[in-house]
């Protein structure tokens, strides 16, 4: 098939960027989108032009490295699909495709399509864990986790940390990312002792980097793992409760 690409080129974090157009007259519909960029880069190198920088690694939709706005959609047109798992058969022959980096204040551009997503790590650092130092764990089957709970926690834990939710959000909010981690840990029995501190710290950290959530729901649509926006409701509920919970009385719950 024949495709035209408009790709964002930016030499460095402080450089001014601009779109450049490239013609790809003969590509196969069986190619993945990243293989299209590989092919473009080979052509650019041949013409003594610097290749397009972009983040990618596993190409199986699990590492969360790839991150492209394709025609204004995070990871492109396929639902529940990361850029690396998007195939050209999803595009119309002869069309023009616009490719940009994630656009968010918290994700500064490093070069071309590559951005700095360290802010997501900072959210995890502030509470996205269960404190269980190595060696201190009891036998795994001493902690019973009802199947429904384990399944729901797994649904949330499937987040790959790509940042598509932030890129898709008109407010550049990171609610879905944060909610996914909070829900994964707060749903599980192991996560209860740190539940209220976790949600408080993670939300506070999130708000120091990212915009606020106003329930647009774009994040859920963009998420390559189709993580449910319901987890944001759970995040909000726990965050609210954390404000008045007397944490000393937690074990009195009944």
């Amino acid at each position: 098939m024949h495709l035209k690409l408009r790709v964002w080129r930016q030499a460095g974090p402080t450089a001014t960027g601009a779109f450049e157009s490239y013609d790809m007259p003969e590509v196969s519909a069986e190619m993945s989108f990243l293989e299209l960029i590989d092919e473009l880069n080979e052509k650019l190198i041949e013409a003594n032009k610097e290749p397009v920088a972009f983040d990618h690694d596993c190409r199986e939709g699990i590492c969360g490295s790839c991150s492209m706005m394709i025609n204004g959609q995070a990871h492109g047109p396929s639902r529940g699909t990361a850029t690396c798992q998007l195939f050209l058969r999803k595009f119309v022959d002869g069309s023009e495709i616009t490719v940009e980096p994630w656009r968010a204040g918290a994700f500064p551009v490093i070069r071309d399509l590559s951005t700095d997503r360290t802010a997501l790590d900072h959210i995890i650092e502030s509470g996205g864990f269960i404190s269980a130092p190595t060696g201190s764990a009891p036998d795994a089957n001493l902690i019973l986790v009802p199947k429904e709970v384990a399944d729901a926690a797994m649904d949330a834990a499937a987040c790959i940390g790509c940042g598509a939710c932030v890129a898709a959000c008109p407010n550049s909010a990171a609610q879905l990312f944060t909610a996914a981690k909070v829900a994964h840990l707060n749903l599980l029995p192991q996560g209860q002792p740190e539940r209220w501190n976790r949600v408080q710290n993670m939300v506070d950290t999130m708000e120091s980097y990212f915009g606020s959530c106003t329930n647009h729901g774009e994040c859920e649509k963009a998420c390559p793992k189709e993580i449910s926006i319901d987890f944001i409701a759970l995040l909000n509920k726990d965050y609210l409760k954390a404000q008045w919970k007397n944490r000393k009385l937690e074990s009195q719950r009944g």
Binding site: F129, I130, A132, T134, G135, S136, A137, P138, D139, A140, I143, L144, V145, P146, K147, A150, A153, M154, A157, H184, L185, L188, Q190, G191
Partner: peptide, 16 residues
Amino acid sequence: DQCAAQGVPFAREYGG
């Protein structure tokens, strides 16, 4: 044991 304590959501039977 270590991973379960960290909250790794391993597959479970109905009894937990």
